[in-house]
Write a protein that binds this DNA or RNA. Structure first.
Lengths: 216, 216
DNA sequence: GCAGCCCGCTTGTGATCACAAACCCCACAT
DNA sequence: ATGTGGGGTTTGTGATCACAAGCGGGCTGC
């Protein structure tokens, strides 16, 4: 029997701690595109040696959250417009499916929670806080998709978010909006009505709206 | 100016060599599901120390090609039926999109090459060679999808293939078929006719056929 | 015969080090 | 002013080692 004396906190493995903290920072847009990182710098920052730093970086690079030049230099990805269009298309494909699978399981408590999160999104927008906006926006989507009971699909969607993190920050950083996202309200309305085609359209619109701002 | 004295062969980095060779073996179904691996064993096999072996394993684990138990033991993934269904659905979503994007760029030379590869698939089936079947089958799909000019989507599709590699081997290993895949011919016919709905249906059918064998 | 325990060996983890390559910056020349 | 060369310095890579945890096999006791 495993008594698990410290069940609350996470794994004590150093590389995993470094990985999770770096991943969160990247996904939330804490780092701008092309931002350089060093193994020794990461190690110093998180109080570990180069070895776990290297493993965390390697893992993030495998997920597309970091890029490594031919000489091994580490930086956050600076995406081309074509790459952004692709990633947006992937988001549309995967997240529409996730939303569709979540719809039959979406009960009232979930919908109310989504509304609460969406209020936080509105606050972040009002305060011009790009990182808070990205974080709460992703929390909105993840909360919905968790109901789909499709962990592999959710992992894929999060991988796409991760790749877009730095770019999203740059994108929303130069955007000056004042109103909360309109499509979130459409998503919530479609969930209430059990309207699957409407839900698919609303999710697709929400996911690709950022693209239009950039390319258009 | 970079003269690049040895442009033909690949990177000389040890961890990358180990990664690529392991990845190929896993994707082609060389290893059965749940097969255990050790860092020291991998290092000995490829003539490197534990360090590059660890990096290769970490990278493959990030892509879902290997799983690590809570105690760090390494093995190929043994997928549940739910997980298989999810991965098949992901293949359907992504690969249908890739085929659709490849369609307008598919000229005659590509179609003839697909027919040639499909002949190899038929040979592999006739010879009951599961690994050769998986390899040529994936080559068929990758050749088509390369025309889509969508590297991020292709990478996602390959990640799914990677996760299913060991399971596919177990699947086709117990399958006793004698005829070449019917849906490949439908794909080729749809490409010739420029029939996009037909192509989407054919790709979706081809991708999900294996699922029906397993679950049904 | 069988369940439970214990010890030894295998395994992953993280730190440290030597090394080679790339980068950066500044001086120098045009 | 601008391009070019060089050298110190930073950086990633891979090997090696100490260590702790876990798995497994064999023994003991019932």
């Amino acid at each position: 029997m495993n008594l698990s004396p410290r069940p609350s906190d996470a794994t004590m493995l150093a590389h995993d701690r470094v990985y999770r903290r770096l991943r969160t920072r990247i996904m939330h847009g804490d780092l701008p595109p092309g931002h350089p990182l060093t193994l020794r710098g990461i190690g110093t920052e998180y109080g570990v040696s180069m070895t776990p730093a290297r493993e965390a970086v390697r893992r993030l690079a495998a997920e597309g959250a970091l890029t490594m030049s031919t000489s091994g230099r580490i930086s956050t990805p600076a995406l081309s417009n074509d790459r952004i269009e692709e990633l947006a298309a992937l988001r549309a494909l995967i997240e529409v499916e996730l939303a569709s699978r979540a719809l039959p399981r979406a009960h009232l408590a979930l919908i109310e929670r989504l509304q609460s999160i969406n209020a936080s999104v509105g606050e972040a927008v009002a305060q011009r806080d790009a990182v808070a906006y990205i974080r709460t926006n992703l929390e909105f989507h993840r909360t919905l998709y968790l109901r789909a009971q499709a962990p592999a699909m959710l992992a894929m969607a999060e991988t796409v978010w991760l790749q877009m993190g730095p770019t999203m920050r740059a994108l929303y950083g130069r955007l000056r909006r004042t109103e909360a996202p309109q499509f979130h309200r459409l998503i919530i309305a479609a969930l209430r009505a059990g309207d699957e085609p409407g839900l698919r359209l609303a999710v697709r619109s929400d996911v690709t709206q950022g693209l239009r701002m950039l390319v258009g």
